[in-house]
């Protein structure tokens, strides 16, 4: 099974003459967790709706396990996956009947149905809720019932739109734990939309950043994955190639981001209070109007922004050796 769970080619969606989604190519690997991240209106929900076959693309192709969805029986494909809406809707009946809904649609017999319902309610920590009325539940409980309702289907793909947007902090932890466990135990491919960068990096194996309907290279620049090392009383973040001093005194950091504007560039090492200083070589130069974006290879490739004036005065160019300096407090941690 070396096919992708999903493959997208030249996909666009146009609403009222406005392109809301434009993805030239995207692949989703089986058994991974993907975080589709971006602000409101970035196209996250549209992407999820198209992957779950609720919306048809304006142009382009979507392949599900190598099958062109335009040529497949959509009803059959829909039964292999499920989408949990941002504000899940529970049918105005009991929790049990809600969770049973998709199983009935698949013609699963009563005994098996009962077994799966119990199993999945337990998984989301709602055992004993079977006879409760769905409209009497709290936001977090509603979200969990919706997830249980999705899980009973044993889907190959679980799509979730902002699964924790409307739940309290404690429920967020519970839900994230459930999603991780599902992915690890059953190998379910999970694609979740979120506007919370921390959540995206906490959960996802891969993050898809959307901005204005397009996939952005990186939502936050100079983003590195790694772990925290302690040297005496200094907290260092080790990316594997470089060690960056960070301010928050915690070990629970898995990603850092260095804002390009926060980095000072110089020809010679400068003596300042900033804890981070690296030497490197300019690898790439891109003109951005008033400013110039430089990519400096300092062990890791770091993107740095300088004004056009400084760029010219300093006579910088590809291959120039420079020093990069930035404060530990400017490093964002996730």
């Amino acid at each position: 099974m070396d096919t992708f769970q999903f493959e997208i080619r030249d996909l666009t969606k146009v609403y009222n003459g406005k392109t809301v989604l434009d993805i030239p190519h995207l692949t989703i690997k089986k058994g991974s967790i993907y975080g589709a991240m971006g602000p409101n209106g970035s196209g996250k929900t549209t992407l999820l709706s198209m992957l779950s076959l609720l919306l048809s693309p304006t142009s382009g192709k979507i392949y599900f396990e190598g099958i062109d969805i335009d040529e497949a029986d959509k009803h059959v494909l829909r039964q292999k996956m499920t989408l949990v809406l941002q504000n899940p809707f529970l049918f105005s009946t009991t929790v049990e009947k809600n969770v049973a809904y998709g199983l009935k649609a698949r013609g699963i017999e009563k005994g098996e149905r009962k077994k799966r319902i119990m199993e999945c309610l337990e998984l989301v920590g709602l055992e004993g809720f079977e006879k409760r009325r769905a409209d009497e539940l709290s936001g977090g409980e509603t979200q969990r019932v919706a997830i249980a309702r999705a899980l009973t289907l044993y889907p190959k793909v679980l799509l979730l739109d902002e699964p924790t947007a409307n739940v309290d902090r404690r429920s967020v932890d519970v839900l994230e734990g459930i999603l991780k466990e599902l992915n690890q135990r059953f190998g379910i491919t999970i694609i979740l939309a979120t506007h919370d960068i921390n959540q995206a990096y906490r959960l996802a194996d891969e993050v898809i950043s959307l901005f204005g309907g397009k996939i952005a290279k990186s939502p936050v620049e100079n983003l590195f994955k790694g772990r925290v090392l302690r040297e005496k009383d200094i907290f260092l973040f080790d990316t594997g190639r470089i060690k960056v001093a960070i301010l928050p005194e915690t070990d629970e950091v898995s990603h850092i981001s260095i804002p390009p504007e926060a980095v000072i560039i110089s020809h010679e090492p400068i003596s300042t209070s900033a804890r981070n200083s690296f030497s490197g070589e300019i690898y790439q130069v891109a003109d951005g109007g008033d400013s110039v974006t430089l990519v400096v290879d300092a062990g890791e490739k770091l993107t740095v922004k300088v004004t056009k004036k400084s760029f010219q005065e300093m006579r910088l160019n590809v291959g120039s050796r420079v020093y990069l300096t930035f404060k530990s407090s400017s490093v964002e941690v996730f």
Binding site: V84, G102, A105, A150, L153
Partner: peptide, 8 residues
């Protein structure tokens, strides 16, 4: 939408 996502 919910009915459809649940495979109805």
């Amino acid at each position: 939408i919910t009915a459809m996502t649940l495979g109805a």
